[in-house]
Structures are given as structure tokens and as C-alpha cells.
């Protein structure tokens, strides 16, 4: 797992992927910060974090696509699968590498609260919980997109599929609050919504239930990814 983790992390920074990603993410987060805080001269960062999670939803497939679908497209998966590594070690190594890139972005994102702190009071606990929630939600999207792209053979179709699934997850969050949806389904959608689970963190609540949900969500997605990889050896056409 360690070897895969190091190679993937190195792969991100030896190719333009991480840098392009960084540029786009910083440009979009900078724009959101400008619109939410600089134009309105407000110090409340929560709407900024809330909107940033949508940005991550759009960018996560691009970060994740090379990990499994990219390997299949380049046929380097033959090297990994015929090596003594287990499928679990391969998937976990890749997931952690993408997670570290996400963590790096969160650290860079801390520049915005620091800028605010120069002119107004910033509640450290509030920023901490928002960052933690963003990180957990980001990990959940990475795991989800890793699972979706793991089923694909081509990078382009993998990105399209992962984006589609992310948008569906977003729709589930919207439908959870829709008045025309029956209350039972409403509650079900609310329970599973990745966005709904992020809301407590934006209200400075360190929600253990939501944190546990994100962790379990990641675990389920990773187990499916590993199982699909194993199953492909048997069923691949």
C-alpha cells in the first residue's frame, strides 16, 4: 500500500494534474471568497465553505480519474494486478494519495480565514469544524468517484460517469428538502445526503453522527471498489 501511495502522490506532482487542479481550485475558491466576503465586506465564512463543497463535487472526478480508470486505459493495471499486492492495498494506497491532495487544498484554503482575521474576529472553532466537515465530505466524494471510475475503462467516460453520480448526489440533497416528496422518502434522502451531512459542520457543530456517516460511506465505497476489482478478474470480457 505504501508503494502505491507514494507513487500516486508523486504521480500527481510530477504531472500537470495537481498543479492544474490547484490553479482551478484556487481560482474558483478565490472568486467565491471575493463574492461572499470581499464584495459584501462580511466575515462569515460559512456560505463560502458551503459553496466550496459544490466546487469540490465538480473537481473530484478529475483528481480521481487517473487512479483506476487511467491505469486501465494505459494498461498499467496489468503490472499492479499481477504483482503480489492485494486489491485492497492498491485501492487504499490510491485513495490515501488523493486524500492527501485534498488535505493540501484544505491547508491552502486556510489562507482565507487568515485574511479575514486581519480585519475581523474569526472563530477558530467554527473554521475548524467547517474545514473538518469539508475534509470528510471531500473524502466521501473521493471514495465515491474512485468507486465509479473503477468501473470504467476510459478516462473520459469515467469523468462523465463520476460527474453524473456527483450531480445525482446533489439532487438527492435538493429532493430531501422538496415539499412535493413524501415525508418517508424525504427522511431517507436527508439521511443519505452528503450535503445534508455537511450542514451541522457549517453551524459549528462537531457532529459525530455525520462524521461517522462520512467514514462509513467511504468504507462502503472502498469495499465495493475492491470487490469490483476482484470480480473483474473473474468476469472481465
Amino acid at each position: 500500500m505504501n508503494a502505491i501511495f507514494r507513487r500516486e502522490l508523486k504521480g500527481y506532482f510530477l504531472t500537470p494534474t495537481a498543479y492544474l487542479f490547484l490553479v482551478v481550485f484556487l481560482a474558483l475558491s478565490g472568486l467565491l471568497f471575493y463574492l461572499n466576503n470581499l464584495v459584501t465586506r462580511g466575515s462569515d465564512l460559512m456560505p463560502f465553505f458551503s459553496m466550496l463543497s459544490y466546487v469540490w463535487m465538480l473537481l473530484s472526478p478529475v483528481l480521481v480519474v487517473k487512479l483506476l480508470a487511467g491505469e486501465r486505459q494505459q494498461m498499467t493495471d496489468q503490472l499492479l494486478i499481477t504483482s503480489p499486492l492485494s486489491s485492497a492495498a492498491i485501492v487504499l494506497g490510491k485513495f490515501l494519495a488523493a486524500g492527501v491532495v485534498l488535505l493540501l487544498f484544505v491547508l491552502i484554503m486556510l489562507a482565507y480565514p487568515i485574511i479575514i482575521s486581519l480585519y475581523a474576529r474569526v472563530w477558530v472553532g467554527e473554521v475548524f469544524t467547517a474545514c473538518l466537515g469539508f475534509l470528510l465530505q471531500g473524502f466521501a466524494f473521493v471514495a465515491l468517484d474512485l468507486m465509479v471510475t473503477g468501473f470504467m475503462r476510459r478516462s473520459a467516460s469515467a469523468v462523465a460517469a463520476a460527474l453524473g453520480v456527483n450531480l445525482f448526489v446533489w439532487l438527492v440533497g435538493l429532493l430531501a428538502n422538496a415539499p412535493f416528496v413524501p415525508s418517508a422518502i424525504n427522511r431517507l434522502f436527508s439521511f443519505f445526503s452528503l450535503y445534508g451531512r455537511f450542514v451541522p459542520f457549517l453551524s459549528a457543530q462537531l457532529s459525530f453522527a455525520s462524521a461517522l456517516y462520512f467514514i462509513l460511506f467511504c468504507a462502503v465505497c472502498l469495499v465495493i471498489t475492491i470487490s469490483a476489482m476482484e470480480l473483474r478478474r473473474v468476469k472481465q470480457s
Binding site: 508503494a3 504521480g11 494498461m75 498499467t76 496489468q78
Partner: peptide, 22 residues
Amino acid sequence: PETIPLYPELTAAEYLRFCCDI
């Protein structure tokens, strides 16, 4: 394999280091 599984961003030595690690 028939299609050589190379990572174009790695040098030959780095690639073999990775192969040794896995």
C-alpha cells in the same frame, strides 16, 4: 505484457524502484 505497463512520468530507475517496492 504485450503492452509495456510504463508510467511515462517516471525515469527508468524510478520505475524499477517502484516495481521492486510492489
